[in-house]
Design a protein around this nucleic acid. Structure first.
Length: 225
DNA sequence: AGCCAGGGTCTAA
DNA sequence: TTAGACCATGGC
């Protein structure tokens, strides 16, 4: 495996077509905030309880205290409630129209999202890709972990981004599917089993659990070993 | 019991 | 510019 495209093909071949985060842009935004440093199961349970009331209108009509209570099981509820309220306000500037937001150039949209307190790079990229179809590669703990296990140690996220965005078609769907594939791969295969038999990455996947396996000084590499 | 889960902010050096 | 403390809750 030499580049991000080949890794993608391997993951795709082993897992099949991945699912999208959610068809509903506001659901993506809402869940992207809730899942910050939180188990996905907690987010699922919370959203199941909310049901069809997961709309910017309904959430936006809640008081801060109501919202905090609603999302409490996800942790950091005060910070997250404030962030979600800010997101709703921001989305309201575009009349809660995803189509309207999609008109915004990606770099400007990313900047707008990052200006909201509680929204960092990962959350912004999740929203860009899954809610508004802008190709901005999502770098999360799973992505870093997988690359590290592949023995490819990037010194920072900028290098990781470069690795993916240099060789991939600038297509939000590819980015979204890719991220989902990494996630599914790490959860189902790499997370629990120190050395898994039947891993589609085979010898390339060393399943090293420590950063020490990552080669220092290889941050500029664009190829995997 | 203790650790971690698809982070982000703020502060100190 | 970067490392570390802090934020909260649930699950195993």
């Amino acid at each position: 495996m030499r580049n991000a495209n080949e890794l993608y093909q391997i993951l795709l071949a082993s897992r099949g077509k991945p699912r999208w985060w959610s068809e509903d842009p506001f659901t993506v935004m809402f869940q992207a905030v809730l899942v910050q440093n939180t188990a996905w199961r907690s987010v699922e349970k919370t959203c199941e309880a909310i049901g069809d009331k997961l709309t910017p209108q309904t959430i936006g009509a809640m008081s801060l205290e109501e919202l905090e209570l609603l999302i409490r099981p996800c942790g950091f509820c005060k910070a997250k409630a404030r962030t979600i309220q800010a997101l709703v306000l921001w989305f309201g500037q575009y009349d809660f129209s995803a189509r309207a937001v999609e008109e915004i150039p990606a770099f400007r949209l990313r900047r707008e999202l990052l200006s909201i307190r509680g929204i960092g790079a990962e959350t912004a990229d999740v929203i860009l890709v899954y809610a508004f179809y802008k190709p901005s590669f999502i770098i999360d703990a799973y992505t870093r972990r997988l690359l590290s296990r592949l023995g490819c140690g990037f010194s920072d996220d900028a290098s990781v981004r470069q690795f993916f965005e240099d060789t991939l078609p600038k297509d939000a769907r590819v980015y979204g599917w890719y991220h989902w594939l990494i996630l599914e791969h790490c959860i189902s295969t790499c997370k629990k089993v120190p050395r898994c038999s039947g891993c589609p990455l085979k010898d390339s996947c060393r399943h090293s659990l420590s950063q020490e396996q990552a080669r220092p000084g290889s941050g500029q590499r664009k190829d995997l070993p």
